[in-house]
Write a protein that binds this DNA or RNA. Structure first.
Length: 352
DNA sequence: AAAACGTGGGC
DNA sequence: TGCCCAAGTTT
């Protein structure tokens, strides 16, 4: 297969079919960086309003480097994968302190920044700096897997190297940025996971999967492990107009976000019993469990939960942050100002 | 190297 | 409803 010709066809196609997206208006590496981080595992339509708010709040590297974690998480709330937001601030600080406020322009240096991996480094080097580097994402994997009928699972290190090797042969020297964005736009608009629009594809006469009549059979993915389901309890502890929330530790799930205290129900426990145990472990006080005021189902990436929410009161003693970063008593009306994950935000809004 | 890491939309 | 999927990175 003539990969060089295919790359040229893609880049040509992009000239007349590229999407008009806010972050494509300039070559400012900062603007491209923010968009690329937001777009990780996230749809374009979801990102657009977040991107606008972000740029209004943090228009450049310097403003971001001075931002507080809470302020950044608040803007990020709802986008998920919150380590992305924390890493943005870290990287901005590194760039201001060690790179004179300028992005490096090589893949090698870019990859040293927190939150910048293989894909992002290639994207920045090619799109912002015109370097001849590939940026291989999920779209590229799918497009190329179909093109060559790649028969092994694509979610392995080896496959990414092999497909990256093919992509490198396709790359159009001098316009790698357009080439990389072309393959992403093709994957997003034409070569979609379900119901690809092969009739409109500039590559269909060369695509092995299409010629075999089964584009949807590719890419092949290894079967995932089953997703567990947990029952979780949470406490709304009110004193007067205030309610107790805690800030989750910076690492791990929903790191740095606030929540209503609680945790997983263990085997053999009833709901109130589990909640009393969790509050004792987390806050060092006993809890009188009152009424169930709601329940929520939610799916994280690798497990599902049903969260049962109870009101409760602390008969004696002062709660302490034994497992959280911090605890705080806040007015119901102030809850919106504390970044939270989806379930806790639903709970906080139900209280208002 | 496999698992962790969010959320919303489509079917 | 439940599962798949979306411009990946980190440990």
């Amino acid at each position: 297969m003539n990969f060089s010709q295919i790359g040229w066809l893609l880049t040509q196609w992009y000239q007349s079919h590229s999407r008009d997206l806010p972050w494509r208006a300039s070559k400012d590496p900062y603007r491209i960086w923010i968009s690329e981080v937001m777009l990780q595992q996230t749809r374009v339509e979801t990102v657009i309003p977040y991107y606008a708010r972000w740029m209004a709040a943090f228009p450049d590297l310097e403003s971001l480097s001075k931002a507080g974690e809470q302020e950044v998480l608040q803007l990020w709330e709802g986008l998920g994968y919150y380590s992305r937001a924390r890493n943005l601030v870290k990287a901005a600080c590194v760039l201001m302190a060690e790179y004179q406020g300028k992005f490096p322009d090589t893949v090698r240096e870019l990859k040293k920044l927190p939150g910048v991996g293989e894909y992002m480094a290639g994207a920045l080097a090619s799109i912002a700096y015109g370097r001849d580097e590939i940026a291989l994402d999920g779209n590229g994997l799918r497009v190329i897997a179909r093109l060559v009928e790649y028969s092994a699972p694509i979610n392995t290190q080896i496959s990414k190297q092999e497909i990256g090797g093919i992509m490198r042969q396709m790359l159009t020297p001098g316009s790698a940025g357009d080439f990389n964005q072309a393959i992403m736009d093709l994957g997003s608009l034409i070569c979609t996971p379900k119901n690809p629009l092969c009739a409109n594809c500039p590559l269909h006469s060369k695509c092995r999967a299409f010629l075999q009549g089964k584009p949807e059979a590719y890419p092949i993915k290894a079967r995932k492990t089953p997703i567990p389901h947990y029952v979780v309890v949470a406490a709304v502890i009110r004193v007067g107009n205030k309610v107790l929330i805690d800030k989750r530790k910076a690492d791990g799930l929903l790191g740095g976000l606030w929540e209503f205290p609680g945790g997983k129900v263990e085997a053999g426990e009833d709901l109130p019993g589990a909640l009393k145990r969790e509050i004792l472990e987390e806050l060092g006080v006993s809890l009188i469990v009152e009424d169930e005021i709601g329940h929520y189902k939610h799916a994280y990436t690798h497990y599902r939960v049903t969260v049962h929410v109870f009101t409760g009161r602390i008969p004696q003693g002062e709660p302490r942050a034994l497992e959280a970063d911090e605890i705080r008593w806040v007015e119901i009306s102030e809850l919106e100002g504390f970044p939270m994950g989806k379930v806790d935000r639903l709970i906080s809004r139900a209280l208002a």
